[in-house]
Design a protein around this nucleic acid. Structure first.
Length: 1045
RNA sequence: GGACGAUUAGCUCAGUUGGCUAGAGCGCCACGUUGACAUCGUGGAGGUCACUGGUUCAAGUCCAGUAUCGUCCA
């Protein structure tokens, strides 16, 4: 049998091989009819806006880690994959591309054609996203992949809306949005960027009106950058404690250009005494702060703009129809003419721009749909309260716990949820309406509705009607239709009803994700699987089995928008929480501490890293970054494809843009491709950036980051440890391991393995991935490789002199070695599944029967092997805690300390590793005995002969010394020791000891310490001090000898 | 403006309920390719724990304040 492995692990070939293997064996599939307990994780659905970035890689790695771990623990583990249609973002991307490439707007091509284009975009990016996840090793049940606009999810959306509507939780109202007058659409906050522009800061006055409505001589001065909004002013506001204006509050003042009188109010939140005149005008319909002030003070909201940002009828004859900027000029002139102009200064103004049209946006009041979040009239908890209760009574727990505050504080505001969006891409609001004259509606012939008796009878239960009485003699009859009744919709259509144009907020559908993906509201059928794979049944077993889920793993920025809403809709629709744990992981930042984003140009495709370092290395590194407090800073660079020189990232001088340090031009807004010049080889290349897609035919500078070498090096170390083991497994025979046959190092490594197994299990249960990774790395590298493998090397050597004994030793060592490796692969499988599978299979070839201590047939795949620690009954575990032996580990520590001390002496005196040295140990007889037992290891590990050990040992002349807690060591170095150097070394050691002794004895001299500190602590200090003093004595003795000699 | 977090070695980060001499990886220095691994081994250097006060026998850890940075929400 060829047992030789390549010297280095080659990830890419192994990755595709095992992905196929796992898929063929259906290891990712979750079966609702299983006997096992279910474990469900719902993926935080990526947007189909674009490819996955590092944040997704982190998020995916952690979910897969938990899923694989739970699967090994014996759960029926479902990790549900899918994507989000991401209304605004996706439509924006497609519209922008269309505009850039073809100069078309959505109005040019119409609703249907645009939606069709977006579906195409979705198809291509969904494919790419799912492929990226697969490449990461994500063990999702791919058959169940959902999309928020697919039939299954759409049904859930329709039913939920219908239920809300029926329960009176849906209403219409006004809301201030960022309006893009150029594209005539509302723009989301994260699609708005702020840019400084040259502007003006005008100061005007409004005359105060007396109580009987006459103009007085009093004036109020205020400043503004947007004078045209005067038309929509509903108040002038001062600070309540501002003495200058106290006497005016409650009076009214007049807007000179329109002649309208408005109240003078006091509001501590809006007005700042020390800023300008201390007085501000309030335009609730056109400013976000004023809007809030308007709500607080019950002010009128006057919309002054048409959708194209011209002034509407509120401008009167003078201003109606003017563009807002022309109107601004006109109003300034008019105010001057009327004598209310005070002054103007030039000023830089932070102006909000639409990321899509690059033009300024206007705060704009528009009709919107809302879901009521507050409590019911009878004080029964509303939607928000129900979700708060779930966290308050710990049905839902946050890890780390501090994030529950974000959740509770936000829900506590119980702000109604604005669910409508003026878009074409999304779930269209399932409401049809018909506007009727109120008078007519109330007449006998209509009796309050325009729906016929026939209609009502035919569609009883499938629709809900609601009449909204308007203020100008018109009423709106609104009919909400339940899921699955297209004919009812058609009937409405023919009765003159029109469907609402708006679509639902993306979060509306993603809020339903945990139950919608499992087929709710269908209680009779399992949700459909990928084409060709059906599961028929009488009831929806998938929903029964996998809801509620176990843990949601996500990043903190969507705790409110998404997590809170999933809990709330879960409780509303399912009467149960969607998951019991929420783990919030860190954010990935670039090397400058900025969040990675498209607009900053600092994103990184995980595929670059996977290609470069291997999936396991990326996963392992990522897991090691995922701690509880710190976000993850990743300094990145671009590797020149011609000479492999790495060009670091650099910040654009002006803004937050990031690009290779050698690129001199700004990337924002450039549609032209920019090339990266390499400072070393002077050749140019394209580079990986989210700004545009790479030309795959040309060489490209891909992203690299030194921080992933951590994982790569670890994988290589693991590979080589296994390689060494496999090379030495020739002639392996399975068999029971007798405890009496175990050597010191065997017992030690089993004790350590048991300990790290327990530790990793506990840490994963707390989602402390960084610590779990470190524990397992330290064991693998610093204990298993550095000590255990080194120590068993002599036993593994094929026999020469005493054949029989050598063979026995080799067999024993092989059995323990194989058992330890087996356990190690199990622990590592969730972290680094590919390399573990590769090695597991190699081990299966050579040692299919293995185990500690009874050999057993090994599992077919590492993925389905049993996790070696059973949380419920630890002693029943494969690697039980009873193997942990603290005394033994301490004894082993002395061996390690001795070896390190001798190596240190070698290094200090320049004695090569091949030159044998002798060692004398002065210690108690018990210690001496223990040292004698492992004498052969001194020879093995440090090429050192333990010449003698015991209490009677005297320091040989011309020797280097070291001291441990319970032993002094001497290494005779005839002719090699430089007496003065050794004296120096020992004096330094003595000084160090004296320092520690001073600290400790100081404590003990302090009566308060002795009195107040726990006895245990005092005793420990005493003990340590005694040890230190003994050590110092030894060192001083050596110094005396050296000085005398 | 509010909430939360961070500040520890040149860099990136650990450091449990306060308690033995504050740790790791990378980088750095010296030495080393005798059969697992140079993506390596051995040894080493490197820290006024942001600052100021306080509580305590004892503070990197708890409290208050200051400074700087970050995130989320307004």
């Amino acid at each position: 049998m060829n047992t030789e492995l390549p010297k280095q692990y080659q990830p890419s070939e192994a990755q595709s091989r095992w992905l196929d293997y796992w898929k063929e064996n259906g290891y990712f599939d979750a079966n609702p009819n299983s006997e096992k307990k279910p474990h469900t994780i719902m993926i935080p659905l990526p947007n189909v806006t674009g490819a996955l970035h590092m944040g997704h890689a982190l998020n995916g790695t952690l979910q897969d880690l938990i899923t694989r771990w739970r699967r090994m623990q014996g759960y029926e583990a479902l990790w549900m994959p899918g994507t989000d249609h991401a209304g605004i973002a996706t439509q924006a991307v497609v519209e922008r591309r269309m505009s850039e490439e073809e100069g078309l707007t959505r109005h040019d091509i119409g609703r249907e054609a645009l939606v069709e284009r977006i579906w195409k975009w979705k198809d291509s990016y969904e494919k790419r996203i799912l492929e990226q996840l697969r490449q990461l090793g994500a063990s999702c049940d791919w058959r169940r992949t959902r999309f928020t606009l697919d039939d299954t999810c759409s049904k859930a959306v329709r039913r939920t809306f219908f239920k809300f509507f029926k329960d009176g939780l849906i209403f219409r109202g006004k809301r201030l949005v960022n309006w893009d007058p150029h594209l005539q659409t509302a723009v989301a906050n994260d699609e708005v960027f702020h840019e400084e522009v040259d502007g003006h800061f005008w100061t005007f006055t409004y005359p105060v009106v007396s109580e009987d409505g006459e103009l007085t001589d009093d004036k109020l001065a205020f400043s503004t950058t947007r004078p045209e909004t005067m038309i929509g002013d509903s108040a002038v506001c001062v600070h309540p404690t501002d003495e200058r204006y106290e006497h005016l509050v409650g009076l009214r003042c007049r807007i000179p250009v329109t002649g309208r009188d408005i109240p003078i109010i006091a509001d501590a939140l809006l007005a700042k005494k020390e800023l300008g005149t201390g007085c501000v005008k309030v335009t609730p319909a056109h400013d976000h702060n004023d809007y809030a002030c308007g709500l607080r003070n019950d002010l009128e909201q006057i919309n002054i703009l048409n959708p194209d940002a011209t002034i509407n009828e509120t401008g009167g004859e003078k201003y109606q129809g003017m563009d807002r900027y022309d109107c601004r000029t006109k109003i300034v002139a008019d105010m001057e003419t009327l004598g209310h102009f005070v002054e103007v200064e030039d000023r830089k103004i932070e102006l909000a721009h639409s990321d899509r049209s690059k033009s300024p946006v206007e705060p704009y009041l528009s009709d919107q749909w809302f879901v009521k979040m507050g409590d019911h009239v009878d004080d029964k908890p509303g939607l928000a309260q129900s979700a708060m209760d779930a966290v308050d009574d710990r049905r839902v727990r946050f890890f780390p716990q501090r994030y529950q505050r974000t959740y509770l504080d936000w829900l506590g505001e119980k702000r109604d949820w604005c669910i409508s969006r003026q878009l074409w891409w999304g779930h269209r609001i399932p409401v049809w309406y018909n506007d009727v004259e109120t008078q007519q509606l109330d007449s006998d012939s209509f009796n309050g509705t325009v729906l016929t008796e026939d209609f009502k009878k035919k569609w009883d239960g499938k629709f809900v009607e609601y009449v909204e009485t308007g203020d100008q003699g018109w009423s709106r009859v609104m009919v909400c239709v339940d899921a699955g009744s297209p004919e009812c919709e058609a009937d409405l259509q023919s009765a003159g009803f029109a469907q609402e144009e708006d679509v639902l907020d993306t979060w509306f559908s993603s809020a339903l994700w945990p139950h919608a993906t499992l087929g709710w509201p269908d209680r009779e059928n399992n949700p459909p699987l990928a084409a060709g794979e059906g599961e028929s049944s009488e009831k929806n077993e998938v929903l029964d089995c996998f809801y509620p889920g176990n843990v949601l793993i996500t990043s903190r920025d969507i705790i409110t928008l998404w997590v809170a809403r999933m809990v709330l809709t879960g409780l509303y629709n399912m009467d149960d929480i969607p998951f019991s744990h929420v783990h919030v992981h860190p954010k990935i930042l670039d090397g400058f501490g900025q969040t990675m984003s498209k607009s900053k140009g600092n994103g990184c495709d995980p595929q670059d890293l996977i290609d470069r370092y291997g999936t396991d290395a990326v996963r392992f590194s990522i897991a090691s970054f995922a701690g509880e407090t710190q976000d993850v800073k990743l300094p990145m660079g671009y590797e020149c494809p011609h000479c492999q020189n790495v060009v670091p990232q650099a910040l654009d001088g002006k803004g937050p843009m990031v690009k290779p340090a050698t690129v001199k031009v700004a990337l924002r807004g450039s549609s032209e491709k920019v090339l990266m010049p390499c400072p070393k080889c002077k050749k140019e290349s394209q580079f990986s950036t989210p700004q545009y897609d790479l030309d795959s035919a040309q060489p490209a500078a891909r992203m690299v980051s030194e921080r992933f070498e951590y994982g790569r090096n670890f994988c290589n170390k693991l590979w080589n440890a296994a390689r060494f083991a496999i090379m030495n497994l020739e002639g392996y025979t399975p068999g029971k391991i007798e405890e009496s046959d175990l050597r010191l190092e065997d017992r030690w490594v089993l004790s350590r393995l048991s300990r790290v197994t327990e530790e990793v299990t506990t840490l994963l249960g707390r989602y402390q991935f960084d610590k779990a990774t470190q524990a397992i790395r330290d064991f693998t590298w610093n204990e298993f490789c550095d000590w255990y493998l080194e120590m068993i090397k002599p036993r593994l050597k094929p026999g020469t002199e005493d054949e029989e004994q050598q063979t026995d030793e080799r067999t024993g060592a092989q059995r323990v070695l194989v058992g330890v490796l087996d356990g190690l692969f199990r622990l590592l499988q969730p972290f680094t599944p590919f390399i573990c599978e590769e090695l597991w299979q190699k081990l299966n070839d050579i040692a299919p029967e293995r185990g500690l201590f009874e050999p057993q047939q090994s599992a077919k795949s590492a993925m389905i092997a049993l996790w070696p620690y059973d949380t419920d009954s630890p002693e029943e575990s494969m690697l039980p805690p009873s193997w942990q032996d603290e005394n033994l580990e301490n004894r082993f520590r002395r061996l390690q300390d001795t070896v390190v001390a001798v190596r240190n002496i070698r290094a200090v005196y320049g004695i090569g590793p091949n030159v044998p040295v002798k060692l004398f140990m002065k210690c108690e007889p018990g210690v001496a005995e223990e040292l004698q037992v492992c004498a052969d290891q001194f020879e093995n590990l440090a090429k050192t002969i333990l010449e003698a050990a015991g209490a009677e040992i005297d320091r040989p002349s011309a020797s280097a010394s070291f001291n441990l807690k319970d032993a002094d060591g001497f290494v005779p170095l005839e002719g090699l020791v430089d007496v003065s150097a050794e004296l120096e070394r020992q004096k330094k050691e003595a000084d160090k000891l004296r320092g520690f002794i001073k600290g400790h004895s100081g404590k003990l001299k302090n009566e308060k310490f002795v009195q107040n500190a726990p006895e245990k602590v005092v005793a420990e200090v005493r003990e340590t001090l005694a040890g230190l003093e003994k050590q110092l004595e030894s060192v001083e003795a050596v110094i005396a000898q050296l000085g005398a000699g």
